[in-house]
Simulated assay, not measured.
Amino acid sequence: MDVGILGPLQVRLNGQSIVPSAGKPRQLLALLAIRAERVVTVPTLMEEIWGEAIPKSAATTLQTYILHLRRQMTTALRAGHTGTAQAPGLNAKDVLTTCFGGYRLAVRPENNDLREFQSFAARGSAALETGDAQAASLLLERALGLWRGTALVDVPVGRVLAVEVLGMEEQRTRALEQRIEADLLLGRHASLLAELRMLVARHPMNENLAAQLMTALYRSGGAWRALEAYQELRGTLIEELGVEPSPRLQRLHRAILAGEPELELTAEPGQAGRQLLRIGG
C-alpha cells in the first residue's frame, strides 16, 4: 500500500486507488492513513466524521464505512494492475484491522509520504544542529519536495483532521525555515531574496521568515532594505496584535543598525551570528 497525504489524498493498493468518492468514508480513510500503524479509536473516528452531532446510528454507519473500504481493498488485492490474482495470502482485514476499541491501517513507513517527510526533516534538522549546512539543505529540500500542495486538500476536514493538518503545515513551515537557514549559512543569501520576499508576503507576521529576509538583505548589501523589512513587520504586529516584535528580533534590528560583524557569514554555527539568525531557535 502506498499512501499520499501531503496533497490530495492518495491511497493505492497493488497500484489501484482505494480512495472513496463520498466525503465521510474519505475522511475516515484519511485519518486512518495519517495515524497508520496506530489504533484509531471508534470515538475519535466518530468525532471526526460527525463532530458533536453524533447520531444514534453512528456505530452502524461507521461499520458500513469500514466494510465499504474493505470491499475496495479486496477488489484491489484480487485484481491489481493486471487483473490477475495478487497477494493471495493477504486479505482486506489484514490491511485494515479491527483492534480493541478501534481500527488500524497497516502501512509501512517507507510507503507513507508523511512518514518519509518527517524522516528527512528530522535528519536535516540534526545535520543543521551539528553544523553540516550542506547536508541539511539537501535533506530538507528533499523533505519539502514530497509536498504536492496543501495536505488533504480534497478531503472534508472535521475537528480531528483539522488539528492533524495544522500540525503537518507547522512541520512544513519549520522544515522550510531550516532549509533557508542552511542556505544562508552556505552563502546563498542573494538567491534567496525572491523566495523570502514571497514567503514574507504570504506570512506577514512570521518573525522567523522576517529575520531571514532581513539577514539576506543585509548580506546582499541592502542594510536599509533590511531595516525597512523590520519596520513593515513591526507595523503589522502592532496593527494586528497590538504587540512589538520579539526581543530576539529587536536584537537583530539593533545589530543591523550597528553593522555588527556577527551578521556576516564569518560566524560558525552555534556562535553569535547563528543565534541572531535563528529567531525561533
Rank of each mutant, 00 (worst) to 15 (best):
R142H: 03
A143Q: 02
A30K: 11
G7K: 12
Y103R: 06
E116Q: 08
L186G: 00
R188A: 12
L192V: 07
G187E: 13
A121K: 12
E228K: 11
E228V: 07
A136S: 07
P204V: 06
R197S: 07
E170N: 05
S21H: 03
Y230V: 03
G89R: 12
P109R: 12
G158N: 05
G222P: 00
L265K: 05
R115K: 15
P204L: 09
Y65M: 04
R142V: 00
R174N: 11
A267H: 03
G280Y: 08
G259Y: 09
D2Q: 12
L233N: 02
Q63R: 14
M73Q: 06
S220K: 09
I34D: 06
A272P: 00
G131P: 00
N112Y: 08
R179K: 01
L184V: 07
G23D: 09
E268W: 13
A201R: 15
L62A: 13
D154T: 09
T74H: 14
E240A: 12
V157E: 01
G80Y: 00
Q178E: 04
E268S: 08
P43K: 11
P8M: 13
S17E: 02
G15A: 11
L138V: 05
E177L: 01
Q178H: 04
E268V: 11
L227Y: 11
L138R: 13
S21L: 08
V243C: 04
L193A: 07
I49H: 03
R26T: 02
T236E: 14
H203E: 08
T215W: 14
T215M: 15
V200T: 10
T44A: 10
L29W: 02
A121R: 07
A223L: 15
V39E: 13
P8L: 13
I279H: 14
T97Q: 12
Q212D: 03
A133V: 08
L138Q: 12
T236L: 11
P43L: 15
E169P: 00
E169W: 03
R26Q: 06
T97F: 07
A106F: 04
V3E: 07
A194K: 15
A36I: 13
A59V: 13
E181C: 03
Y218G: 01
N91P: 00
